[in-house]
Structure formats: structure tokens, C-alpha cells
Design a protein around this nucleic acid. Structure first.
Length: 491
RNA sequence: CGGGAUGUAGCUCAGUCCGGUUAGAGUACGUGUCUGGGGGACACGGGGUCGCGAGUUCGAAUCUCGCCAUCCCGACCA
């Protein structure tokens, strides 16, 4: 097989790009930083959406939709929120085009300037809290548990497909509560949902914890995060859940009357995951042969490829293939029988390997004769000849094995790349040479955090939530530390 | 916005320094034959405002000037 994909060792970034390209996930668009998500990439995203949506519904949430455009004035209301996003907002200033004097070029009509400029949403807290003001009067109106699936725009300088794009797809939950405790509980519940999704569906182990002041979401009191370790030793923030306190309620004057008749501001949360999860999925499992998709998120779990010379053989093979396909579908397994005669079997093998289809069956004349099948696992690249007898049960088991196997492989990788370090020189060495998660003591100051970032490019990915934290001395300043925090270089 | 580079076939690029037939290769695409258990072989074929605009010249992908676009490195970030 011709090597179409750069190896991870040779050039990790190029490997990532090659996977996105060769697995037909996405491509760049004429607008810098924006991407076209291709059918195969979108199919995986749809699977993720489906599972997450179910999880949100199961935890009591309902979907709604809020507008893409936000009046500029809304952004002046929550100061730290504005500061956080001001530098990456796309702004709509005009509403009409016209032709220039020569009538040749399309230009913006200067006479069609908007009275109030509109911000393309970088996130929807402001428009949503403006709206919630009208929805909330009494404790009887609470809680509000709303989610929306939407696209948002953050004008990023350096972009990479899925990992950081100017426009991306995501979901954002926005909830309103009568008490602080309830909002905090919601914040933690949703980070648990994300962790559950990451581990049990994406087969990607994650660390859970809170963000430091410096890394926190603009406008939040507390941010919970899940962080995964990618194969190059860099961390990827994969989902966040924010406790917003009463910040947005105060900014948008959202008050409610509680049972005792007292007027108080509403408590808020917001939480989201994005198409960045696609990037996480790619870098968590894929190898030098292409994408590896966990069976539970694979749009096609099993592909059947016929191998034949004469049409008469194909008829017989197709009959058997359809029989197996039916058996698998009855078990809820998604199957594709690829009997196109426009591509050779070898071509198809490579294609599905690069696209990460978990299992591949090949049926040829030999198999018809011997009542066998060739089955190939994408995760281990193992091939074996199996009997047609009981194939559906066998495949069902294999899919479960693959799901488990790739999780364990990712977990092993994380464990092998996790260090407990008490010496700053060693810390620096690990960060520059191999990366990974480093658990180290920190004195809790932003000053120290910043110095470490400057000197090592590593940031505090999270502060673990631990029942009995182990105190120690800050790795940088030597000052007292309450507990170890997790450092890594990050995407 | 600073520093570096590049624009030639759908894609990746050679040709540019040193101007000179009809502008090339690989790949992709089309047709046919042989093939078919890991991106098959051969034959034939289609496809180009050489980024745009001026200039120099008998002659410009190649030299000069201007413009445009893109990519990479830095500051920002889910």
C-alpha cells in the first residue's frame, strides 16, 4: 500500500492534517479559519450529537434556539465576559450591498449602516440572559434547563481543522436556578455527563477538575473542565461547565421572588462541548494508517467487501453478504455492503481503514466454498478467517472488545505519560522532551502560574477536586501548596 | 500587526537563477483490454487567463515595478 499518511513520529501536525484529509472528515473553505465538514466527518459529529442530546434530555434539559446576532450593547453588561471575548468578535455593521460607480464591483452600501452594530455570537450568555429576564419572575419559574445546538464564531488568529476554527458547531446549555447550591450541583452534574460521554462513548479517558482564575471562562465564578491527553503529549480541553454565580443575572437584572417573598438574583450555569471533540477523537485513537473510530460512535460499524472475478460469483457472494448484513442489523449493528464495481477490493480496504470503520468483512469465492469469512479489526489491524456460523454474535462481541480495547490503550498511554514531580528542573525537562500530564505543587498564585507558562509553555490544566488533598511545597516558589495540580502543554 | 516564504493542470510540484519550438511530471479524471484475497498493469485520451496589472524585449512562466492572495513563525484562544 502506498503511504498516504505522514507518520506521527515524522511530523505529528502533518499526521493530523493527513488524517482529516484522507478520512474525508473536513476541508478548508475560502474563508480563512472556516471549515467544510464533509459527510463522513459530519456523520461522526451527528453520532456524538445524538448521544449527548439523549444525555441532556435524560438530565431534564430541553432544546431551544437563540439568534446568531447579538446587539453590541449586550456585551457591555458583564465586564469580564466582554474582556474575554472582545478581541475575537465578528461584527456586522451593514445590511446591504450595492455596485460601485462603474457598476462592476459589489461593494458594501455605505448608506446601509446599522444603527446598532451586531455581534456574531461567540457564545450566547448575553442574549440568553436578556431573554431569561422576561421568563423569570418567581421561584415557580425555576429552574430553567435549556440547551441549544448552534454555530458560533470566534475570530481566531491561528486555526486548525476541528481543534480551533473561526466558526464551529457546539452545544451550549444555559440554566437558571433559585439557589447557589442547585446551580453548583447542575455545574457538576454536567461535567460528569461530559466525562461519561468522553470515557464511555469516545473511549477517551479524561481528568476532571476546576480551572484556575487565569484559565477560567470569562464571566464565570468557577469552571469545571475535562482534559484528555493526546498522543503527542499535549492536553486537550474537551468540555467545560461553568458556575456563573449571579454575574449574568446582575448584568441583565434577572430577579425572582422566592418562597418567603424576598427578591433575589437568579443563579446560573452554562456548559458546552464543540466540534473540537472531533479533534480529540482523532488524536486519542488514530494511528499511522488512518482514523480509528470507537464502535459506539462509528457511523458504519461493519463494512462488507466482496471479492470476485466473474459476475456469477458476485451473485452468490452478494446473497451471502445480504444474509450476514440482515443478521447484524437485527442486532442493531450498522453495516454497509460495498459492492461497487468501480473500485478494486484493495482500494476499498485502504479507504475503510483510513476512515476508521471498526470491522471489515471480506467474502470471496474461497469463503463461499469453505463457509468462512475474513474479518479484520481496525484497532489492532489483526485479520482472521472465521466461520460464517454465529458470525453476528462474534461481531457483536468484537465491537464491544474494540470499544474496550481502545479505551484501555488510551488509558495506558495516559498513565505512561503522567508524572508526579517535585523538582522544577525535572518539570522543565519533562515538558520540553516528552510532554504529558505533570502533577505538581503550586502556591496558588497567578504570578507563579504565569512564570511557569513563560518558562515552559505549560499551563495548569486543572485543579483536581480531591477529598483529602496532599499539601506540599510549590515547585516554583517553594511556598506552601494545598494540593497538586495538573500541568501540561495544551492545544 | 512584526519576521520568513510561496502563487504554473482538480491536487502535489518541476521549469524561473542564465528570456527562445507546441509549458512538463506524478497523481487524479475519461475510454478500452487484461485484472481482482491490501490503494492493480498497459495503451490511448481530455484538461492550463503560468495569481492580477503594467513595463523592458523581435520574443516573458522566466527580467523590472506595482497590486492581490495564501501559507509558515510570533502575540490571543474551546
Amino acid at each position: 500500500m502506498a503511504k498516504e499518511i505522514t507518520s506521527r513520529q515524522e511530523n505529528y501536525s502533518q499526521w493530523y492534517n493527513d488524517i482529516v484529509n484522507k478520512a474525508d472528515l473536513a476541508e478548508n473553505s475560502p474563508v480563512r479559519g472556516c471549515m467544510v465538514i464533509k459527510p463522513h466527518g459530519y456523520s461522526i459529529w451527528e453520532k456524538m450529537q445524538g448521544v449527548l442530546d439523549r444525555m441532556f434530555k435524560d438530565t431534564g434539559h430541553t432544546n431551544a434556539y437563540f439568534p446568531l446576532f447579538i446587539p453590541k450593547s449586550f456585551f457591555s453588561k458583564e465586564a469580564s465576559h466582554v474582556e474575554g471575548f472582545a478581541k475575537e468578535c465578528a461584527v456586522v455593521t451593514h445590511y446591504r450591498l450595492t455596485t460601485d460607480e462603474d457598476g462592476k464591483e459589489i461593494i458594501v452600501d455605505k448608506n446601509a449602516r446599522l444603527d446598532e452594530e451586531l455581534i456574531v455570537r461567540p457564545t450566547s450568555e448575553t442574549i440568553i440572559w436578556h431573554t431569561y429576564k422576561g421568563w423569570i419572575q418567581s421561584y415557580r419559574d425555576l429552574p430553567i434547563l435549556v440547551n441549544q445546538w448552534a454555530n458560533i464564531v470566534r475570530w481566531e488568529m491561528r486555526t486548525r481543522l476541528f481543534l480551533r476554527t473561526a466558526e464551529f458547531l457546539w452545544q451550549e446549555g444555559h440554566t437558571a436556578h433559585a439557589t447557589k447550591e442547585e446551580a453548583l450541583e447542575e455545574t457538576r452534574r454536567m461535567i460528569d455527563v461530559y466525562a461519561d460521554f468522553a470515557e464511555n462513548w469516545m473511549a477517551m479517558p479524561v481528568l476532571k477538575g476546576t480551572k484556575t482564575d487565569a484559565e477560567r471562562f470569562a464571566g464565570a465564578i468557577q469552571t469545571y473542565t475535562i482534559e484528555a491527553l493526546m498522543q503527542d503529549g499535549k492536553a486537550l480541553q474537551s468540555g467545560t461547565s461553568h458556575f456563573l454565580g449571579q454575574n449574568f443575572a446582575k448584568a441583565f437584572d434577572v430577579k425572582f421572588t422566592d418562597q418567603s417573598g424576598t427578591l433575589d438574583y437568579v443563579w446560573a450555569t452554562s456548559w458546552g462541548v464543540s466540534t473540537r471533540l472531533m479533534g480529540a477523537l482523532i488524536m486519542a485513537h488514530s494511528d499511522d494508517n488512518g482514523l480509528v473510530v470507537p464502535p459506539k460512535l462509528a457511523p458504519t460499524q461493519v463494512v462488507i467487501v466482496p471479492i470476485y472475478k466473474k459476475d456469477a460469483q458476485l451473485d452468490e457472494i452478494s446473497a451471502k453478504a445480504h444474509e450476514i448484513k440482515d443478521q447484524l442489523q437485527q442486532k442493531g449493528i450498522t453495516v454497509k455492503y460495498d459492492d461497487r464495481d468501480t473500485q478494486t477490493p484493495g482500494w476499498k480496504f485502504s479507504e475503510y481503514e483510513m476512515k476508521g470503520v471498526p470491522l471489515r468483512l471480506a467474502i470471496g469465492p474461497r469463503d463461499i466454498q469453505n463457509a468462512t469469512l475474513e474479518i479484520a479489526r481496525r484497532d489492532t489491524l489483526e485479520k482472521e478467517i472465521i466461520s460464517q456460523e454465529g458470525v453476528a454474535d462474534h461481531i457483536e462481541q468484537l465491537l464491544a472488545d474494540i470499544q474496550k480495547g481502545i479505551y484501555e490503550k488510551a488509558l495506558r498511554f495516559r498513565e505512561e505519560n503522567t508524572y508526579y514531580v517535585d523538582d522544577y528542573e525535572e518539570f522543565k525537562q519533562i515538558m520540553s522532551e516528552k510532554g504529558g500530564f505533570v502533577w505538581a505543587h503550586w502556591d496558588g498564585t497567578e504570578e507563579t502560574e504565569l512564570k511557569i507558562k513563560e518558562e515552559t509553555k505549560a499551563t495548569i490544566r486543572l485543579v483536581p477536586v480531591e477529598e483529602n488533598p496532599e499539601p506540599g511545597k510549590c515547585i516554583y516558589s517553594g511556598k506552601p501548596s494545598k494540593q497538586r495540580v495538573v500541568f501540561a502543554r495544551a492545544y
